[in-house]
Simulated assay, not measured.
Amino acid sequence: MANRPTIKDVAREAGVSPTTVDRALNGRSVVREETMRKIADAAQKVGYHSKGIFLSRLDKPLPELRLGFVLLKKSQQFYSDFATHIEAAISERNDYRITSDIRFSSSQSPDEFTDLLKTLGRRCDALACTAVNDPRLNRVVQDLKDKNVAVVSLLNDFAQGIRKNYIGLNNMKIGRLAGWMITKTVHQPGKLAIFVGGNRWHGHDLREVGYRSFVRESDHGFTVLDTLVNLETRQVTYEATLDLLQRHPDLCGIYIAGGGMEGAIAAVREVHSTPKVALIVNELTAESRAGLIDGYVTMVISTPLKELCKTLIDLMIQSTTEADDGVSGQIFLEPRIVLPESF
């Protein structure tokens, strides 16, 4: 009996910790299939008395899920990175065999979002989507809900009261944060500008409200110009920024509430040989990083994609395993603030 193999012997043979073997034996948490296989082989080799438990758990099939995602333009680095983080979060799950179906909308058309959601809804167990606010999407999300296919809204909270969850940043606070940064770093009052992606982005509306309200409350003599729509495109933002700089010599700050920041960065570089305008943009990319380093970008407000995607996958799996309680929730993540001195 003294030489009877123990958990420590199995762990040593498998090259893992005794704690991992204990988890695999008692089912206290999920152990990767590859690790479980190593433990089962090690238990077989050393003659561990409970080797059958490892083998039975290894042979037990994992429940399968198909999750669908709709993101914006794949050509934009942020959304390409978003897709990568989704796949990474899925690959870390060992309690389900998950297949992902990631689609990209090429425009801001409600019809395109509607078609994508309908297509994915016919084959997926749960969906997550970044989309505009439009009654047509409300109807689609309600139809999906009636078929027990939950929808999570990403970054922009659409289909409120119908979708299962919203996950993203607190957009009102993000706008106020942008206003705070500009009013604190620009010491000579002047004109400020703001770009939104379009009139159907509720999140951009909230950012605009937050931005304007903070600037107004600061009472430092700044004037916010009429809001400009850039359709989240580089070229439109570039041309509009050049026009702003030409028409308003006292322009001292620009906030890009959505996408298209690359155009603004290019325009201020072209007009000013040295940085003269405070520029607040979203998401850390190669271009915004370069802008921070050389001073043309004052601050980047970045979405914590790794945390978002991990939480998102949890929510989507939960929606398929628990009965709908009729509650539409929301999760606000803390943004990552990136400054020139962050590097």
Rank of each mutant, 00 (worst) to 15 (best):
Ala2Pro: 07
Asn3His: 15
Pro5Leu: 01
Lys8Trp: 01
Gly15Ile: 04
Leu25Gly: 09
Val31Lys: 04
Glu33Ile: 14
Lys38Pro: 00
Asp41Val: 11
Gln44Ile: 04
Gly47Leu: 06
Tyr48Gly: 07
Leu55Trp: 09
Pro63Glu: 02
Leu65Tyr: 06
Arg66Trp: 06
Lys73Ser: 12
Lys74Tyr: 12
Ser75Phe: 09
Gln76Ala: 14
Gln77Gly: 03
Gln77Ala: 14
Phe78Thr: 04
Phe78Gly: 10
Ala83Met: 06
Ala83His: 09
Ala88Leu: 13
Arg97Asp: 15
Ile98Trp: 11
Ile98Asp: 13
Asp101His: 14
Ser107Asn: 10
Pro110Gly: 06
Leu116Ala: 11
Leu127Lys: 06
Cys129Ala: 15
Cys129Asn: 01
Asn138Tyr: 02
Asn138Ala: 03
Asp143Ser: 12
Val152Arg: 01
Phe158Val: 00
Asn165Gln: 12
Gly175Glu: 11
Gly175Arg: 10
Gly175Pro: 08
Arg176Glu: 14
Ala178Thr: 05
Val186Arg: 10
Gln188Phe: 08
Pro189Thr: 02
Pro189Tyr: 00
Gly190Met: 06
Lys191Gly: 00
Ile194Thr: 06
Ile194Lys: 06
Gly197Trp: 02
Gly198His: 12
Arg200Ile: 08
His204Val: 00
Asp205Glu: 12
Leu206Ser: 09
Arg207Thr: 03
Gly210Met: 09
Arg212Tyr: 07
Ser218Gln: 14
Ser218Ala: 15
Asp219Met: 09
Gly221Leu: 03
Leu228His: 05
Gln235Asp: 15
Val236Pro: 05
Val236Asp: 12
Ala240Trp: 01
Gln246Asn: 14
Asp250Ile: 07
Asp250Trp: 04
Leu251Asp: 03
Leu251Gly: 01
Ile254Gln: 04
Ile254Leu: 06
Ala257Arg: 00
Glu262Thr: 14
Ala267Arg: 12
Val271Phe: 10
Val271Thr: 05
Val271Gly: 03
Thr274His: 10
Lys276Trp: 00
Val277Asp: 01
Val277Cys: 01
Ala278Gln: 09
Leu279Met: 05
Asn282His: 09
Leu284Gly: 00
Leu284Ser: 02
Leu284Gln: 00
Glu287Lys: 05
Ser288Asn: 03
Ser288Cys: 00
Asp294His: 02
Asp294Cys: 07
Gly295Phe: 03
Tyr296Arg: 11
Met299His: 07
Val300Ser: 06
Glu307Lys: 12
Leu308Val: 08
Cys309Asp: 05
Lys310Asn: 13
Met316His: 01
Ser319Met: 07
Glu322Gln: 14
Val327Asn: 10
Gln330Ala: 07
Gln330Glu: 12
Leu333Arg: 09
Phe343Asp: 06
